[in-house]
Design a protein around this nucleic acid. Structure first.
Lengths: 145, 145
DNA sequence: CTAAAAGACTACTATTTCTATGTACTTTAT
DNA sequence: ATAAAGTACATAGAAATAGTAGTCTTTTAG
């Protein structure tokens, strides 16, 4: 399961992505619109800003806006900032690799091999889906046959 | 990330799968072989037994053994017993569905749609990989080119 | 030049989940 | 009868998650 932090991060990015042309949006506004605790959101936006995905402006009339094209912000990037590894076992992680404590022999470990396949499957979708794609998906409701 | 519980569960199942022909194996033995805290493993094996995947026998000469063909025990089954949902958001879960608190409209939610795709990708691998497959994978080490 | 708006930063607290352990009980083989 | 093993339930400790509070800094408007 995603942490709430990550879910909130995605929500904020999607909202900002829909407002690309507008002036920066305030934390308070984002928090209200997306029903996210304001002070918690504050931290999250900071992380995204420090990672280069958001631009922020202080003072009156300030706020947050996207610092990249929503087509260039992928789910995998966000998840790695806010949740860390994509893989389900540390030894199968690309960016957050570390050995499993109890492992006898990582090289032959069948569990590891299986979860590398799982990782690659998730990674494919997460790495191909951008904020822009998510915005597009919102436009088409699930068809009621 | 998988919980340790799930990782231990898979390890135990793989070990028991390798010993299909032998008499039941004791918790203490499994714990030692796989470096799993014994009392913790006890609970885990119980869960797997109650879910029908293991057979247990009390008393002297007792222990645990697989109750199914290792070809018929899939990772997805184990994960659902010990970790619960496969999906990364509750609203995208098949077996553990529930609405996201903060969600405005689930039907159009683009985040949900994206994570349904992620779920399906993971599910494909997890649903196709059996304990038997994992045992097979152990036999072939990663080739050293 | 001051006040207000807004984000930045640091620290703390609360809650939940995960991991593990302890104690007592039941079943079974010898 | 006794010892070997699993069963059941309760609890504790640790770690991660979620959220809050307070103070500082920057910027704009008047």
């Amino acid at each position: 399961m995603l942490s709430k932090k990550t879910k909130y991060a995605i929500k904020a990015l999607v909202l900002l992505g829909k407002n690309m042309d507008q002036p920066p949006m305030q934390i308070a506004r984002i928090a209200e619109d997306e029903r996210i605790p304001k002070k918690f959101l504050e931290q999250i936006l900071l992380d995204l800003r420090n990672a280069g995905y958001l631009y922020s402006k202080k003072g009156a009339g300030g706020g947050y806006s996207l610092n990249k094209d929503p087509k260039d912000i992928f789910l995998v990037d966000i998840l790695r900032i806010t949740d860390g590894p994509i893989a389900m076992v540390p030894c199968a992680s690309l960016k957050f690799y570390h050995k499993c404590d109890e492992c006898h022999d990582e090289v032959t470990c069948g569990i590891r091999k299986a979860f590398i396949e799982v990782r690659d499957a998730s990674l494919k979708v997460l790495g191909e889906t951008s904020i822009s794609d998510i915005i597009e998906k919102e436009k088409t409701a699930i068809p009621s046959v």
